[in-house]
Design a binder for these strands. Structure first.
Ligand SMILES: [Mn+2]
Ligand SMILES: [Mn+2]
Ligand SMILES: [Zn+2]
Ligand SMILES: [Zn+2]
Lengths: 143, 143
DNA sequence: TCTCATTTGCAAATCGTTCGCATTTGCGTT
DNA sequence: AACGCAAATGCGAACGATTTGCAAATGAGA
């Protein structure tokens, strides 16, 4: 749980200004245990009596994403984007379609496969997106 | 390349009416070699001098998707949905971020992994989404 | 402290998608 | 073949997430 100064350093390193909004948004993402929507972040800021505009939240998340400090994603059948802090770990999620719980895992089965793609079709992989859907142990009986 | 009657049969089997719009859209998806956006489908219909409204294309694709005749998807960093015929094969795509070429593959590395999830966290998998990004052999030198 | 590019406030626009409602059409029944 | 009705479509307006334009405020180096 870094304090404000840590974020200031991070932002400066990326060549962008350290502002109160940017630090506040990074803090909120740090606290979150699941990826948040723009609106969720916006409302959390409001709860903390911050005076901020929705478009500023959008612009902030956009630049933080471009600097790879934040990861943007969208889950199946959901129109709004979600954002989470980039901890630079390679992980994916299992999503319960019953209760919308998200459980992450780090032993990605795709890594190995990518090497084969390089061989097979001379394709240089730079990223991949994987998400698994189904019913968690609490929801399996209600499906 | 089925003729109109084949689609009529399919639509009837799903309990929905066989209309000229629905058959035309299924035909367009049949011809396509990549998933199409709603607008692309709409414009193709217009080229064929069809008199149809955009909202009808949306509604048609929605019902065809709900009947599992069509698959809806969105690719990273793209706001519009894309649709393709469901051939009931388990496949994924490698997408070139240079030229947007899509190459499908069927030897999915996730299938095995899903069994492990069942053991590890008692999670019943119903689906998964996997997409791999990078540079194809024609684009690797221009990146 | 001064300067200037960057960031934000604020409001309006954009754009893919959905909705409402009147009219038309497909299809099972007479 | 004509009939009746639920389903599908025409048409336009609304919606909701996101983007954009521009003037005012602010952070960071000189
Ligand atoms: Mn992975
Ligand atoms: Mn798969
Ligand atoms: Zn669950
Ligand atoms: Zn390419």
């Amino acid at each position: 749980m870094p304090d404000n100064n840590d974020y200031k350093e991070v932002l400066t390193r990326e060549g962008i200004k350290s502002t109160k909004h940017r630090k506040a948004i990074l803090e909120i993402l740090e606290m979150a245990e699941t990826p948040l929507t723009v609106e969720e972040i916006f409302l959390t800021l409001k709860e903390k009596h911050a005076s901020i505009w929705l478009s500023t939240v959008y612009r902030t998340l956009e630049i933080l994403t471009s600097k790879d400090l934040v990861i943007k994603s969208t889950i199946m059948g959901d129109d709004k984007a979600r954002y989470e802090l980039n901890h630079n770990e390679h992980k994916h999620h299992v999503v319960c379609v019953g209760c919308h719980k998200r459980i992450s895992f780090e032993d990605c089965p795709v890594n190995e496969f990518e090497k084969a793609l390089k061989e097979r079709m001379d394709f240089d992989v730079t990223a991949h997106k994987l998400e698994i859907y189904g019913y968690c142990k609490d929801c399996k009986f209600t499906k």
